[in-house]
Amino acid sequence: MTAQETQTPTVERLDDAHSRVTLALEIGLYPIDVLYGAAYIFIDRAYVLLDKDEGVGRPGRYLVHLRGKNPMSHEQLLALCGEFGNELLSQALRRKVVKQNQKIIEEITTQAIAGAAGGTLPTDFLANQDDGLDFLDDPLGIAVPWEEKFKKKKDEPGAAP
């Protein structure tokens, strides 16, 4: 990791009354998929909105707006900011480690799955091997439960049309 990549985002705005916080980080510090990866971790407990401030006369910045799905205290908001910064660092580092060890990871995974399946792997198994290597490690989609819950409520007899 470069020294730049160890920088954490700055708190741009913190609004206790609405459990909202905005973080800013310089564009180029982290690859975009690291930003997505960190944002992804938080969408089950916060509303996340990403934005970009192109910057005039200074480097551009990514803005990360977070709002707690449940009310959060000042301390909890600060902790949320810290955790987001940690997650960025962790994702960036993991990305490098995985890249460095990609061969061994692929070989062990292939062996483990082939061993479990009795040596019969689907034809597209190797082609899709990198599925677990990027920022989305949830093939199911974390957003689904809310949608289902939401729809169910609407479908209930007597629910508003």
Binding site: A112, I113, L121
Partner: peptide
Amino acid sequence: TYDRLMTNAQTRALVMAGLNDGQPDCV
């Protein structure tokens, strides 16, 4: 089927995520 359980994308993702070789700190 057993084959499907062992070789689907979820199983693969769980196996890969559970490897020390892909974890900062662990490595």
